[in-house]
Simulated assay, not measured.
Amino acid sequence: MASFHVPTIDISAWVGPGPDHARAAVVAAVDHACRTVGFMQIVGHGVPDAVMHDLEEALDEFFGLPLEAKKAYVRPAGENRGYSPPKSESLSYSLGVDPVTRMNDFFEAFNVGTSWQEYPAASVSPDDYATNTWPIETALFEPAVRTYFDEARRVAHTLTRIFAAALRVRDDFFDGLTDHSIDVLRMNNYALPPGSIELGAELTGMGEHTDFGLVTVLWADQVAGLQVLGLDGSWNDVAPADGALLVNLGDVAARLTNDKWLSTLHRVKPPVIDGTIERRRSAAFFHDGNADAVVGPLPHFVTAEAPALYEPVTVSEHIAAKLAGSRAGRKNVSAVREAARVAAASRA
Rank of each mutant, 00 (worst) to 15 (best):
H180C: 03
F62V: 04
E68G: 05
D10C: 06
R154H: 09
F110V: 15
M52K: 15
W219R: 09
A320H: 10
A77I: 03
A339S: 10
G275V: 05
A164N: 00
D172L: 00
A33V: 05
Y119L: 07
Y148P: 06
A340I: 15
V252E: 09
T204C: 10
H180D: 04
H45I: 06
R280P: 14
R153V: 10
D31C: 11
A253L: 05
R154Q: 12
N236E: 06
E137C: 06
D172I: 02
L214Q: 09
N189K: 07
S123G: 10
V217G: 02
R35L: 15
N80E: 09
V333A: 14
Y73P: 00
A109E: 09
L246E: 05
P19F: 04
A122W: 14
G275N: 05
H157D: 12
L177I: 00
L298K: 03
G96L: 09
T133M: 11
I42R: 03
G195K: 08
D179F: 03
E202L: 06
V97G: 01
V169S: 01
P99C: 08
P19R: 07
R154D: 12
V26E: 03
I11Y: 00
P17S: 11
A291W: 00
V112W: 10
R330Q: 13
E208H: 13
N332E: 11
L203G: 03
F149Y: 08
D251N: 06
G64E: 06
T147F: 14
G200N: 05
P7R: 02
L246N: 03
D60T: 14
D175R: 01
A340P: 14
W235I: 09
P48I: 12
G200W: 10
R341K: 12
L226W: 12
T138F: 06
M206E: 13
K70G: 01
M103D: 05
F141W: 08
T204G: 09
E137H: 11
L95F: 12
G195H: 13
T133W: 09
K87C: 10
I182Q: 02
G289T: 00
T264D: 07
L265M: 07
F173N: 00
P7Y: 07
T101P: 05
V47H: 04
G325H: 07
D54V: 11
A306R: 12
D242L: 10
V228C: 12
L167F: 02
H21P: 02
V217F: 00
E108D: 02
D10Q: 08
S346L: 15
R280T: 10
L231P: 05
P194E: 04
S125Q: 13
L323R: 09
T303Q: 03
T101I: 11
L91Y: 15
W116G: 14
H287P: 00
S334H: 14
N236A: 13
M1D: 14
H5E: 03
H318K: 13
S181Q: 01
T216Q: 04
